[in-house]
Design a protein around this nucleic acid. Sequence first.
DNA 1: TAAAAATACTCCATAGGTATTTTAT
DNA 2: ATAAAATACCTATGGAGTATTTTTA
Lengths: 304, 304
Amino acid sequence: MEFRHLRYFLALAEELHFGRAAQRLAISQPPLSTNIQQLEASVGARLFTRNSKTVQLTQAGQALVPRARALLEQAAQAARLARDVSEGMAGSLQVGFVGTMLTCGLPALVQRFQQRHPALRLTLRELSSSEQLLELMHERLDVGFVHATRVPAGLSRVLVARQPLVACLGVGHALARAHRVRLKDLAGEPFALVSRVVSPDYHDRIIALCREAGFDVRIHCEMRHWLSVVSLVAQGMGVALVPQSLASAAPPGAVFVPLEGVMDSYDTWCLSREGRDHAAMRAFVEAMRDSQGDVFTNPRLPIA
Amino acid sequence: MEFRHLRYFLALAEELHFGRAAQRLAISQPPLSTNIQQLEASVGARLFTRNSKTVQLTQAGQALVPRARALLEQAAQAARLARDVSEGMAGSLQVGFVGTMLTCGLPALVQRFQQRHPALRLTLRELSSSEQLLELMHERLDVGFVHATRVPAGLSRVLVARQPLVACLGVGHALARAHRVRLKDLAGEPFALVSRVVSPDYHDRIIALCREAGFDVRIHCEMRHWLSVVSLVAQGMGVALVPQSLASAAPPGAVFVPLEGVMDSYDTWCLSREGRDHAAMRAFVEAMRDSQGDVFTNPRLPIA
DNA sequence: TAAAAATACTCCATAGGTATTTTAT
DNA sequence: ATAAAATACCTATGGAGTATTTTTA
């Protein structure tokens, strides 16, 4: 059985006349006859009753009509799907992201991308940076938004957000109404940090920054999520250094004050596997690159 | 796109090696290369990344694999279906029958036929004989079980049941315990009959029989169904002449007594359109013919 | 008898084979 | 250097065309 047979069969089933069906197919009548005979032989059933005056579908022919239509339609669909996937308009895309991306414009950006690629199935997974690196290397993730100082070979990166660290204080804190805070003013304060297991990069940097400022951090609480850190501070349980964008999702009791003299920034990179055949992934990363300024509306520091 | 392309594509998708895939397909390697290229051209997408060491599916290729499998599977299914229909093993069959067939073994017979043709969709419709004739001529019915003296041209018939008419009396009736009843003993009794609209053949014959016996029927009640007739008689509301098989479905208050001297029998014919391409119909009629004695266990009169 | 499907026969497009080249590791 | 895919070229199957025959209403 060939697709040609199905096309010819449907034409004849609709015209019920070899001459007219052949005309519609832009072939002559004899090859239509032989093709129908071939189809009947391969199927093992008479599909038309025919004599010199009338052509009629047999029961078997009637049963075949919808199937033949479906086959041709599905073949066209399959080709279309493959083409769409190769153009990044269909398929699936696994995206990982760290928690801070939620307050940093990612949802809106993903939504906009999804609108332009409606046939693409996006899966979003909140993961720590290190988890994402592993998942990317295992090809269980196509794109990851991470904080990372160094990137393993085989992954390419685009800087998508660069934001300063700010002090997060409870409203009742002595410095809560200050315009600026020097880091060393926080010496001795009980700090809330994201756990080193979740975010070693951030964890180590806070410790290093404080040491530069001349004191050792007094770690009061280690949290599993940025939002937990801010929530804790909002309830007067300590202070924290957090990426500025968290201010947009903070509960009432938290106050954010810029740090004086700390030029260190907190960078978010969009990572993806190099040289992978994955148009959707490329399109996504491209969308990230294009909208760097549009969506991630944080103060732009000079990018290294 | 051809089915050949899909077969070759799947072989390569499974082997990921042109040489081995070609071997499995029992063709040489170059035509496999060209076929894959043709498929890629017709789809409009690269389906494999390949160099001299490795062959890998692209995203588009991965998306196509299940579709290609489905297409091949469905093509085979479609052919199988058409063949089954042409052999009477699949498709649908519209069967009409008069009410008396319900007590005459039809349900068991249909069930047995259905078990042997599980893919066949049987539709059963209780209809009067005249309705069935109409439906058969309009091809809205494939087979009909009717009582009819004469059959229109274009329909062929098989006698499936021949049963005597018996007297149906209420248990309280004077003749209820008799071994035999002469028809003229019922002269003047209130008769229950199936309405002439529903069964003109039966209706007219009862009247004719009674006239032969020397009296005019006193029609007390015209019912729309045999079971209504028996039910009425069971409640002491009259007498009736009915086909013997109704005895098997009678309520307690009804008694059936053979008629003396009445050789008239009540015949049921299985009708079907002649020369129609419909293997299921032919198989069904054949099953009827074969099981004439098995199921319709009524006294067998000489068949005309 | 006439309209229409089937058959006979020819031609050429193309699927597949063999030999060879290119390519990437 | 080598294994493997791509290319070049050839052969032959078979799909489509033209001419003709057969069929049946």
